[in-house]
Design a protein around this nucleic acid. Structure first.
Lengths: 187, 187
DNA sequence: AGCATTGTTTGACAAAAGTCAAAAAAGAAA
DNA sequence: TTTCTTTTTTGACTTTTGTCAAACAATGCT
């Protein structure tokens, strides 16, 4: 099911709602390895990822290039804290493949929530969805061994596994790349 | 600064706002080791913790009694997914000390958000605060060693460290209790 | 195609963390 | 206080994971 049908079905979108929505999202093509958000900058845009793959990561003295999230087609690409509170981002977001996105700015999103109140609910639902995903991830890091975490990832996100460098999977799972290599051999 | 002042200062509460709020929160005393929320039940209430200490934990075939959060005085005690979406909880919440709480039900909270619109913002802020806390925790689990996690906990939450059994700290940090004991000795 | 760069695997080893069981310590209850 | 229960520590050991460096493989670029 495509985006429009989802909105109609879940949120009772009318023709007008859809039009108001569409006019505020700007389609863009982002080549692979384009930064969508930089650390330190206030996130001004949110994207719906039509096709392609992106990831968020942190990079500082303590932690060099640690992937914190993967975004695949159909996902909402957002750095929640920075976008919602309009504060500087502590993470980067970058494309890993050429991406087709529909982008909306913070201002336009606020307009949209006024014009189409259903968007308030959608925003809330997106935030909740992200919260739940993060909670699952946290519990996995808290309770599973490196090998178990990898096997679960393999099972739940086989598609991403095919598409990204292993070093990113490793950092996402909190495993050393050499260890991950050995885990893979042993399965 | 107490609760009332915080609301007045941050959200411009009027006398009336405060009265509408107060009448919907019910003060309660919960003895130590009282379940505030059980797994499988839909969370109907949220508490403001005036004094005492609580924790949330999961308990199932895979994971027996894994602490997922500590709540201390001044915190909002809530199982976000269950309360916000009114779905069965996947976690328990239990008091660890005698607790003084102000409790509000889901229905009353919705009323309150209508009568005092500032509460919509407060609810949003609480959710965001919890999300950020969870994000920090996740990154710690992802990037720090057991020893580093413990030392950080010691530094950031020395009060909780004094008040709860080490086995709960251990499970919260994803460390075996015997290992934690050795880490403590070595510092 | 050829070279440079980046990513992955491997070996040899070290360090970190877990397991199991028993002893010691601390707390709760009669 | 004494007993019972729970929690914490410890020892002996195993397993898991990380580190460093080199070799190997894959990929991108000119």
């Amino acid at each position: 099911m495509d985006f429009r049908n989802r909105l109609t079905e879940h949120y009772g979108f009318t023709e007008k709602d859809w039009n108001e929505t569409v006019r505020r999202f700007v389609p863009e093509i982002l080549p692979a390895r384009t930064l969508f958000l930089e650390k330190g900058q206030v996130s001004t845009r949110l994207a719906y990822l039509r096709s392609g793959l992106m990831r968020s990561f942190i990079y500082d003295d303590n932690a060099s290039d640690i992937t914190t999230q993967f975004f695949k087609e159909g996902s909402v690409v957002i750095s929640m804290k920075s976008f919602n509170d309009q504060v500087p981002s502590w993470e980067y977001i970058i494309t890993m493949e050429d991406c087709e996105v529909d982008v909306i700015t913070y201002e336009r999103m606020n307009e949209l929530m006024e014009v189409v109140p259903a968007w308030q609910q959608i925003a809330k639902d997106v935030d909740e969805f992200k919260y739940n995903a993060l909670m699952n991830r946290t519990i996995q890091l808290q309770t599973l061994t490196a090998s178990e975490r990898y096997q679960l990832f393999m099972k739940k996100q086989p598609d991403i596994l095919q598409r990204v460098a292993l070093k990113h999977i490793a950092s996402y799972l909190g495993i050393d790349i050499a260890t991950l290599s050995r885990i893979r051999k042993s399965i």
